[in-house]
Every structure is written in C-alpha cells, then in structure tokens.
Design a protein around this nucleic acid. Structure first.
Length: 400
RNA sequence: GGCAGGUUGCCCGAGUGGCCAAAGGGAGCAGACUGUAAAUCUGUCGGCUUAUGCCUACGCAGGUUCGAACCCUGCACCUGCCA
C-alpha cells in the first residue's frame, strides 16, 4: 500500500493546483477506493496527448484500486457547454450522441483500464432524464446569480453585448450536480473546467456529501509549442494516430520542446528528463538522439516497447540512412502501363489532380528512385515498382 | 432605437470598375541543405486528362455596365459609438 502523500507526489508531476488537498489525503489514507469523475460531453471525440495526461493520472489511481466513473453527459450534450464558445452550439441527435459515446469509450480504453472493479460508465440522463421540475427548481435555488457571474466567460459575453441563452447559464449547474449524483470523490480536469467543478463541490456540500477534490492539470503544449493542442491548430498528436505517425510527429518537434514533452508526456525519471533537455539544447546529433529517446518513450507508453523499438529503427533507416522503408502500402492497378498521374491518383486519393501535377513538377515523384517529371509518362508494370511521392510517402505498385 | 464601419481563399489580412484566382503573413505541401518530419533558404499553395483554355470563388439575392470583390438596391450577420 502506497502512502497517501506519495500518491499525491506522483500526480504532482502534471498537476497545477489541487483543491481540497487535505481532504483528498485523508480519503486516500482511509483505504476506501475513490470514485474519480471523468465527465465528458458527447461531441465527436478526438483525444490527443494533452487529454491523455489526465487519463494517465487516472490510470495511476486505477492501478492502486481506485475507480474511474466515466460519465457521459448525454443529456447535457443536448445543451452544449458554453465554455470558451462565443456562440451557442448546434444540438446533436440522439443517434449522433450514441455514436460519439462509443467512439469515446474506444479512445479512452487506450489508456484506462476497463475492468468493472476500476471502471464504471454512467450517463447523466439517469438523473436528469426524469427529474421533476420542482426538484430542478430546488437545485437552482442553491446557486446564486453572483456565483454564476463569477464565470469570466459569462462576464465577457455580457460586456461584449452578446446574448447568453438561459440554458447555457444553467449548464455549469447541471455539470456541478453530476458530481453529487454520482458520488464523486475526485475529478482531474484542465483549468477550463475549474468553475464548473467548483459548483460540483458546492452542490455536494449543500446536499450533505463531502465535496470532491479537484486536481487541476498543467497546460500541455502542442507540437508547435503553442499553449495547447487543438484540432483547429492542427498541432496535436491523436491517441488514434498510428505508432509511426506518433513517432514522426514527435521527431518534428522543435528541439526546444523536448524537455517539456518528456516531462509531461512520458514517465521517464525526472533526472533523465533533465538530461534530455540538456542534450536537445546542445544541438547536433545529441539533440536528434534525445528526440529519438523521447519519441520512443511516448510510443512505448501507448504501444509497448517492441513497437517503439521498431519505429525507432524504421525512422533511422528512412531518414538518417535514407533507405526506403520495408513494409509499404500496396496499390493494385488494373492497367498494364498506366501513366504516372494515374498511379498517383490511385495512391493518393486525398489529393487533387492539381496537387499531384504540382508534386510531379516539383520533382517529388519517383519510380524506383528515378525522378518522373512528366505527368503523362507511362509506367510499365511488368514488375512491382516503388512509387515515391514526397519525402516520406511510399507505395508499392503491383499489377492487379 | 439612432449613427458609423465591417463580412475576401484553410486562418489572419490587403484590395474600391478591366493589369484579380485576388498583395502580405501564418498553416500546409515540395525542393535544397542537415542532425530529424528541428532550424535555415527557395519554390508552391481553388478545381479541371495542362489548357496564351474552361469552371467555381470575395456574406446572400437582385441590378447597373462591354466588363463588378470593387458601383446601386434589398436581406442576413458582426463590430464600434451614442441613447
């Protein structure tokens, strides 16, 4: 049994602040498994390394016997969380919500354990779906206007002369009540959720339960060094990225981010993290090697040491030794002597013909290491050939 | 409610009648170089079986004109100021 303060210490690595720390230590020390709230909105999920920082913290607690309660906000999703949004969000159909929930579970299970002893799935429609208006009004009476106006986003919207729909105002109240309804002991969230989860503590206290502790995680940087990973900035590494993509994206980090990444996104000992940072600052092959170690450590966490080792070897082969990788995606073609453009259309369906012509014009396309510069050049396919389009995209072309 | 300004390509942003598929920046893509998909430099960056060609595009719908992102009318949304 690990002592409670030691548990906290482990979490501290990626923690900014803890609300209710003393109570949390007491509860950990009591030996009872904690219920950890992991509440999500059922919008289309695309979890990335930043989300996973929270998940890994929960995973550590699961390994100590605590239970993650995965709370699908199926009912509240119909409202839409106004956090950080300037506009009201469109509502989702029930079918869409179900599909998103399934996808969420898939992605979450890449990090969390899902045995029933340490994982439970709940939905907030369980308590909100059939709640009486009188009960609801009772809840509302527990929260004052001033409390809601403490939310900076609401104040900003008002100051800007924008509307706030009543249901948006109510959203944090409902999210807060979730914590009471599901008996949350602890929730691990980013600072953007601090306000909503504080309301959770408020409800629990008002309704006679001990308030949940809040572990607010550190901000986790995107691969461009920006303050967060986001889809719109296209600077994130998704949990569903292939090991190869994870490895490659990590190698494309600016050298200056190596230490931060190693700290936040791996479990490497802190002295190793510091050493990697120093190596990265040195530049030269030392920096590259540090980054290789970082990439391997992250890939190991998600896909195991063997996969990481293979990706590392593959990367060195392809980019340091400039060899063509071994296992290429295969494209089967019907015609015996297609033009290079036809081959590219088959191999890169996501690109437009104009894009493909551009690649050819810029000298990015080669067959068997021979540059092809004319878009209508026929390629005889008596033997399978290797098609290269760009510095890191290869296909094996075979006759169908 | 009144007055003024705005709505441009993935994002930001210039353009006020033909030289506009639209300056500049960012992102993306490619090439060179290298230590890597870092950094740097260069090129490219709507689509079309490539074409001094066609199609689509400057909030939406009409109109004026040989010709409209640019002028006019209406509509929608946004911003600022006043009340």
């Amino acid at each position: 049994m690990i002592e409670a303060p030691a548990v906290i210490e482990r979490l501290r690595r990626t923690t900014d602040t803890i609300v209710g720390e003393t109570a949390l230590i007491e509860r950990l020390a009591a030996g009872r498994p904690l219920r950890i709230k992991y509440g999500v909105d059922c919008t289309a999920p695309d979890l990335h390394l930043g989300h996973a920082v929270n998940l890994w913290m929960m995973r550590q607690l699961q390994d100590l016997g605590h239970k993650v309660v995965f709370l699908l906000g199926d009912l509240t999703t119909r409202i839409g969380d106004p956090t950080g949004k300037s506009e009201t969000r469109p509502t989702l159909s029930p079918a869409q919500i179900e599909a998103n929930a399934a996808s969420f579970l898939d992605q979450v299970s890449l990090v969390l354990r899902t045995e029933p002893e340490v994982f439970e799935v709940r939905r907030n429609s369980e308590w909100f779906g059939s709640m009486e208006v009188a009960t609801l009004l009772g809840l509302f009476s527990q929260v004052t206007h001033a409390q809601l106006m403490a939310r900076d986003m609401f104040r900003e919207r008002i100051a800007a002369g924008r509307e706030i729909a009543l249901h948006e105002l109510i959203y944090p109240v409902l999210q807060g009540y979730d914590s009471f309804a599901m008996d949350s002991d602890l929730t691990i969230v980013g600072s953007d959720q601090l306000f909503n989860e504080q309301l959770g503590r408020h409800f629990q206290q008002r309704l006679g339960s001990p308030p949940q502790a809040l572990v607010i995680t550190t901000i986790t940087p995107g691969i461009d060094g920006g303050p967060k990973q986001s889809k719109s900035l296209n600077n994130y590494i998704a949990l569903t990225d292939t090991p190869k993509d994870k490895f490659g994206k990590l190698m494309s980090l600016p050298d200056t981010l190596v230490q931060t990444y190693a700290h936040v996104y791996t479990e490497l000992p802190l002295d190793v993290v510091a050493a990697l940072g120093e190596a990265a600052a040195q530049g030269g092959p030392a920096a590259r090697d540090a980054k290789l170690k970082l990439a391997a450590a992250v890939v190991t966490r998600y896909h195991g040491a063997n996969t990481a080792k293979a990706e590392r070897a593959g990367f060195t082969e392809q980019f340091t030794h400039r060899n063509i990788p071994g296992d290429l995606p295969e494209i089967a073609v019907q015609t015996s002597s297609p033009t290079i453009l036809e081959l590219l259309q088959a191999a890169r369906p996501e690109l437009s013909n104009s894009d493909l012509r551009r690649l050819i014009r810029q000298g990015a396309v080669s067959i068997e290491d021979q540059k092809v510069l004319s878009h209508d050049q026929p390629i005889p396919l008596s033997e399978p050939v290797t098609l290269r389009s760009g510095s890191r995209t290869f296909h094996r072309i075979v006759r169908a």
